[in-house]
Design a protein around this nucleic acid. Sequence first.
DNA 1: GAGTAGACTTGCGACTAAAAAT
DNA 2: ATTTTTAGTCGCAAGTCTACTC
Length: 631
Amino acid sequence: MKTCLRFISRFIYISAERNKVASFVSSVRYYNAAAAKTLSDCRWEEGKSSDTQKWSSLEHKGPYFPPEYEPLPDNICFNYDGKHTTTSSAFLTFTHRDSVQMCVCVCVCAGQPVKLSPVTEEIATFYAKMLDHEYTSKEVFQNNFFCDWREEMTKEERKLIKTLSKCDFSQIHKYFVEKSEERKNMTKEEKQVLKEEASRLMEEYGYCLLDGHREKIGNFKLEPPGLFRGRGEHPKMGKLKKRIQPEDVTINCSQDSKIPAPPAGHRWKRVQHDNTVTWLASWLENIHGRPKYIMLNPSSKLKGEKDWQKYETARRLKMKVDSIRKQYRRDWTSREMKIRQRGVAIYFIDKLALRAGNEKDDESADTVGCCSLRVEHITLHRRLDAQEHVVEFDFLGKDSIRYYNKVPVEKQVFKNLKLFIKHKDPEDDLFDRITTVKLNKTLNESMPGLTAKVFRTFNASTTLQDQLNKLTTEGMTVEEKILSYNRANRAVAILCNHQRAAPKTFERSMQLLQEKIQKKKEQIEEAKKELKEAKKAHKDAPSDKSKKLLEKKEKAVQRLGEQLKKLQLQETDREENKVIALGTSKLNYLDPRISVAWCKKHQVPIEKIYNKTQRDKFAWAIDMTDENFQF
DNA sequence: GAGTAGACTTGCGACTAAAAAT
DNA sequence: ATTTTTAGTCGCAAGTCTACTC
């Protein structure tokens, strides 16, 4: 019923704006019916302006500001430099981290208790809260933190506090540990109150009115201040992420809408009415000085439409990919170095689903993608493990996730790579004659809208469809089909190198599962024995009662067998998923219509594949895809 | 072209709520 | 009923790519 209502409301929504918006739905249907028509044909129908104009009316309440800092109670002290008191000098050689473990000692023979100014104290709490995190022991983190902290101190504080290792945050740390403990032990009623408060907030700030329709906002809460922790070896880790003031925030909404009110006594940096962008509010983040935005939720029409476009572009690549592949193969033997490099780079992007690899400054972790690969990131093997022309990749990619792969490549690629690295140092660029901009320009000439990342979408979706076809057979149970789906999903995640840290409890939970399986097997043995006896009893002295018993035992064996199978499926699935993250590809790379069609074709309920949030995001695909959809 | 700013997508891990096990 | 495990959500960092300027 709910689904039905949603569908109806969608329909009303769409019909209400037949002229402008209907094209999203109708052109999808239209597109399905006549695959030969391109996406750009569809877009032209909407009128050219729709490409740049993102809305015609936009109203919202502005961002939600995190609560002001609450100073620590007076009995919680920050202590500095224990040497003036009775602390033994041996203690002073400990770092501040060790001092946490030495808490008892510190409390007894504490250094100077220092009452910090609210600003300084707040920053101290950021650090104190992180104390049992490994990265507070990193030098870069400590230096960045201390540097930024001192900058915010009063003159007097700065004069006193000169060395981080003399800072004792242990009381503050303890205070917050206790607080979080308290929060955990709240009663049901208290939790309920909090929940209601949250939903009230959501109600007030969580939605906007876009072209007359209420749409969910993705991140209506401004990011609270804290210490920056980049990923990998980030040179800026530990720096202070400042509190965002209304005076930092630009509001974007329509001219005639109710302009959101800034918090009392404040004003916005700016209020603008730019309908060529989709964001509602923005500010400059102080770590890198880059803009951040408040935008709509993925379930919104604006985002959904964009998502759909992305997959349509990938489907157009499908039609074009053969000729593009032919072209880059030709480029491998070009007289021009830059064309050869381009040819090999596109080959990697296509074959290995590498990211484009933009230039990066040294203010961020040292990670690379295709175009920014350095000589040191590949090793060439003429022969390796009975394979010829193997390239061994080893580099850190996005989010400092390691990409490690040994790939046999075509002879000409191998030859080219040898050429590219000739007379170069390890830290030189492998592709020194190309950039992502040039590469994308070339791609765009082959097909409008084509960029490096389209290959990832295209290869991911193609792989999913192929794998699903290969792995699903009729006669499978729903559970088996789901395992097949997960395996297909996994093939994509591996292709895209979507990794995760193995869950902390992995080994233990795996062991538990194995024990369960063992137990189940024993139960089956037992049940079989009983069945045998029942059979014999029935044969010896057939009666209604014995017959019933026999049937009962048969059923028990069967049921246990099914349970065992289910457990074994679970085991396989979990083992194979140990370090693979399926979420990213599911959410960003796999055309949802493939999954919807598969579910329909094989009678798998869509709820088994997509949870509620995912169903909201992919509502467009769920509503309009039939079982015959082909990517 | 090269460099930069801006806008938008992609990505992992931490936290939290719900479900399952005890 | 309580504890443990799992699934789902949130937070925000880190990419891609385009447009603009010089």
